[in-house]
């Protein structure tokens, strides 16, 4: 694996790395990952910028106000995508942790490590925009109801994961500890999702549900879905670029170590 190449060009590289195994481990080869992700990343970034470039102005200027909330309803277009990313991203973290714990997939370790700070940012933004929305509408910045509290717990789980995987000198051990924490914390995801249905909360129930018509009028729904897609693409592009950087940094460390050993040798 150490001899992986980092070129991002299209030509196939002769990699004397571990013999390619089937299944998931096909993508464990860092050289192949860098090559493939290098081709995907520009497109992902361009798509994110394009979709957000349409969705954000649409929500801010070209969508109607709500009949009772007025212009404040526009916070929806940034708050709800952040909430989706906070939860969907955590589901991704749990999936990566399973890959990391059971299949010992080396790329899953790195991806989880790079995912958690981005997820923490999305969750923090979800809490902050929710607070900015709650003050004019509910009349309070914060209440300890089941939804808000469980999202705060989700934020601490993201932060805890980001800190824990970086707390060990042995990166593999850190990744394993982080994966265990992520999987224990995964019980919180259904609690966040269903808190508004299971208990009385100040937060209203979900508007966009799989069953039944959305409680959002289409003039509000379409810009929301556009922003949701745009932020999801941006989130994915950020995580992919961070994972690429981490793969390259690992390779740099290996090269530096090898150079130091050569210098020491008589």
């Amino acid at each position: 694996m150490d001899t992986a190449d980092t070129r991002t060009g299209p030509s196939p590289l002769p990699l004397p790395a571990a013999a390619p195994r089937g299944g998931l481990h096909r993508f464990a080869n860092p050289g192949r990952f860098l090559r493939l992700s290098g081709q995907v990343l520009p497109w992902l970034t361009a798509a994110a910028v394009l979709v957000l470039g349409i969705g954000l102005p649409w929500g801010l200027f070209f969508s109607p106000p709500d009949w009772q909330q007025g212009e404040t309803v526009r916070i929806l277009y940034v708050h709800v995508p952040m909430a989706w990313l906070a939860m969907g991203g955590y589901a991704g973290l749990a999936l990566g942790s399973v890959l990391s714990l059971i299949w010992r997939h080396p790329l899953a370790d790195l991806a989880c490590r790079e995912l958690s700070p981005v997820g923490a940012l999305a969750t923090a933004l979800c809490l902050a925009t929710g607070s900015l929305w709650g003050k004019p509408m509910w009349g309070t910045w914060w209440v300890w109801d089941a939804r808000l509290t469980s999202v705060l717990v989700l934020f601490f789980l993201w932060l805890g994961h980001a800190a824990l995987v970086r707390a060990f000198d042995d990166t593999e051990r850190g990744a394993r500890m982080g994966a265990i924490l992520a999987l224990i914390g995964a019980v919180n995801v259904p609690i966040v999702k269903f808190s508004v249905d299971w208990w009385n909360t100040l937060h209203q129930p979900a508007s966009v549900t799989r069953l039944g018509a959305p409680g959002l009028h289409v003039d509000i729904l379409y810009p929301l879905l556009t922003c949701g897609l745009g932020f999801t693409l941006a989130f994915a592009a950020l995580v992919l670029a961070r994972t690429r950087a981490a793969v390259m940094e690992r390779r740099i460390r290996a090269l530096q170590l090898a150079a130091a050993r050569r210098a020491e040798a008589p």
Partner: peptide, 18 residues
């Protein structure tokens, strides 16, 4: 000592509500 408003999950433009 405190009153908070709790809105529901429907959002619609004023024209539709009217």
């Amino acid at each position: 000592s405190e009153v908070l408003a709790r809105h529901d999950e429907t959002y619609m433009p004023p024209e539709v509500a009217d």
